[in-house]
């Protein structure tokens, strides 16, 4: 039992208890808070596993970005300050049955996972630096060259790198952000009456400027 185990048990306990608390509570705001604690615990587990850059990204993107998005969603869709979610007993029953079944299957699969027979060796390998992550995303694996193929240049490991998924993810993010902005745009209260007025104004005159002027005049006259 050394510090690696101590920190793992502390972080795992934080993560697991806050995840369970997020399910049990019925306040949506408390759910979001427990989610923050849980994601922070997961970031700590990433640091403990040597994935330092991943832990930092988890803290910045998830705890800093996604949770703020969720908090804004809670605030924008709540009619009362303390939203309670009523979960009926049959829904709890269904959820608990699913949880028990899934736990049984997954824990059994976990226990059957092949494990090394000999006692685990002490850690000698340094963790991956963020520079290796960056070059892998740019199409070059500086870590994949094994000593056997020391003579080959870096281009031999191009096939293992992640340039194309990186580009795809960037395009995907752009598409999703445009789509989200389109979906959540504020809708002006344009009824059929004002639509008709606008089309009439467009038809009477020749151009968009004249149509806008006519529309403004019609709205002034109407109000």
């Amino acid at each position: 039992m050394d510090w690696n185990w101590v920190f793992f048990i502390i972080l795992a306990a934080i993560t697991v208890t806050s995840a369970v608390a997020a399910v049990i509570t019925s306040h949506i705001v408390r759910m979001a808070f427990y989610l923050v604690v849980c994601l922070g615990g997961v970031a700590g587990l990433f640091f403990l596993a040597g994935a330092y850059f991943l832990g930092a990204v988890q803290l910045m993107v998830y705890v800093g970005g996604t949770v703020v998005l969720i908090a804004f969603g809670v605030m924008l869709t709540a009619r009362t300050p303390f939203v309670r979610m009523q979960t009926t007993p049959d829904q709890w029953l269904l959820g608990l049955a699913t949880a028990a079944t899934l736990s049984a299957v997954l824990v059994q699969a976990n226990l059957r996972f092949p494990r090394p027979a000999d006692p685990p060796p002490a850690v000698t390998e340094p963790a991956v630096s963020p520079g290796g992550l960056g070059t892998a995303l740019l199409g070059l694996r500086i870590d994949a060259a094994s000593p056997a193929e020391e003579g080959t240049d870096g281009a031999a490991s191009l096939g293992l790198a992640y340039l194309l998924p990186f580009e795809l993810v960037s395009v995907h993010l752009l598409t999703v952000l445009i789509g989200a902005a389109y979906l959540a745009r504020p809708r002006r209260p344009t009824g059929t009456e004002s639509e008709g007025r606008r089309e009439a104004a467009w038809g009477q005159s020749g151009g968009p400027d004249a149509a806008l002027a006519a529309l403004a005049a019609a709205q002034d006259g109407g109000s």
């Binding site: 399910v23 949506i28 979610m85």
Partner: peptide
Amino acid sequence: VVLFVTGITCMIAKRN
């Protein structure tokens, strides 16, 4: 496993 199971339960039990 615990996170996965709690997430699935959350999706089932919450109506929000």
